[in-house]
Design a protein around this nucleic acid. Sequence first.
DNA 1: CTGAAAGCGCTTACAG
DNA 2: CTGAAAGCGCTTACAG
Lengths: 327, 327
Amino acid sequence: MTTIRDVAKKAGVSVATVSRYLNDSGYVSGEAARAVADAVKELKYELNPVARSLNTKKTNIIGLIVPDITNPFFPELARAVEDVALTYGYTVILCNSDENPEKEKNYIETLRKKYIDGFIVTSNQLDAPHYANIPLPIVALDRAINANIPTVASNNREGAGIGTRALLERGCKKILFLRGPEELNPANDRYEGFMDVIRHSGIEHHVAICPFHFTESEKIVESILQEQKDIDGIFASSDVSAAGALKAANTLGISVPDELQIVGFDGIAMGEMLSPGLTTVAQDIYKMGAIATRVLIKRIENQTEEQHFYEVPVELKIRGTTRSVEE
Amino acid sequence: MTTIRDVAKKAGVSVATVSRYLNDSGYVSGEAARAVADAVKELKYELNPVARSLNTKKTNIIGLIVPDITNPFFPELARAVEDVALTYGYTVILCNSDENPEKEKNYIETLRKKYIDGFIVTSNQLDAPHYANIPLPIVALDRAINANIPTVASNNREGAGIGTRALLERGCKKILFLRGPEELNPANDRYEGFMDVIRHSGIEHHVAICPFHFTESEKIVESILQEQKDIDGIFASSDVSAAGALKAANTLGISVPDELQIVGFDGIAMGEMLSPGLTTVAQDIYKMGAIATRVLIKRIENQTEEQHFYEVPVELKIRGTTRSVEE
DNA sequence: CTGAAAGCGCTTACAG
DNA sequence: CTGAAAGCGCTTACAG
């Protein structure tokens, strides 16, 4: 392995000069620069980043903490993070937290020791003590806001309003809202958004708590639909639960969208694979990941950071689980 | 930050002794051990892994290279890798290659410099020069085998035979086989498996090349079904293309499974969300990832490695896109 | 069983 | 503009 020392010798300068040249820090005369450049080329020298890290306490590695990469929302996010990170010369470590504070804490601790540069976190635990005064740049994604942590999220409340209105405009008279877990901020915001619109609509509505989980949602919706046969609209606060609802309807022989219209929330790719395709309030998941990564890297590199909260717009995607708007 | 030096001083021994104690390498007297242990506890000392890495050239980090984490096959794999890695005290860097040899090569190069300990790779590029004599432990997943690289894969050929037979047993008279890309080893093996069974069955069959991509598959199948209305069975060599086929059938008003039966391949979670649920030849994706990770870590830790090729069994999952077996 | 010392390969004040 | 030297925090022969 060729080291900075070899380069210095070959170029006839000191290692300090080589280091300055390599890092473009401090002064290096044109002459010295040329000699070093030549030596680097000839020796095919490549800087050892581990040795550098020991000094700088930086690694160009960031951590991405998600509850479970297997949940179809997160791969799209992870892809965006990875893409943008690569652009800036960073590499990303994937951590599945299972929403378990202990696991999260362990990851953060062990990676901090490895001089990881920062974290992008999707978690409800952002107020947990281990986030309180972490000596590392963090950006929160999708969920909870801690006063000190920049956050990027969709406008969940407005999005839910849009989704609700879509159902109303299409003539629904009795709407079932599939509310997500109460511990989840986005789920709560979506609930608020639903209520904002439904409250004054005079339309009958029911709210059921339903985890963002296919099979559970399928069961819950199946039993509700059996009892309340006049439900003609379902707004699910996640696409996965919407998929469960659709499946339940199919099983019961309820025709979608003729007898029952369904709107989901998230915009994951799976939505269009269903039959009929799922109408949904789509988040720009990729964009969320991309922004979060850029914000994090700016923080890491101490660039002045403008905002503290980034809201990504949401878009209604009309597919087959809703009818056309009534005139 | 407290260093090994502080511990040594406090314990009244040399740093060498502390290091030996910490690494459980070489002799340390009971007395010295106790003193060190106490000092470690009192000072809350934590070893600096970066400094260690500079010496050992190991980091307890592995790389996972997948074509695209957004493809629903890979999150399950990634989850398994991450879970098992964590168990052994390793952490994983996620790399999306887009099947691009240059990207792959870059990842390998930059991570090698960072003293990453090894790679798990899903790629068709395993015979590319940059894999030829990589000085790092590698395990190949799902795809191509290079003579020097241990591989874990499903029995694709047998699996395809099982899937084909499932269609035959259920009375299909004209079968469309959705063959994957010709550069993909697993796709080829599945094709062989299909042919093994269909060849001597006397059943009419067609083969269409079809990427593992939903929308493309949907289009391809839609146009084929319009022309050949007597096709009553489709075997897709991936679940995503099976989903496309199902959607096409739904669009055309062809009833599944009554007029057309469909079998997929992969066993990704999405299969059960479709209506009807997708019958598929399921790989044990999690197990594949888990085995690959264990094999890699054994290689990294120089433990003797028994096998060179690991085959994971495949299982037919009957769901709604097929009828019951004819008597 | 233990410690002094060299070494891993870089960065960074500091003096010139 | 440059170099000698200390330092980042560990590991590992080697001599005792």
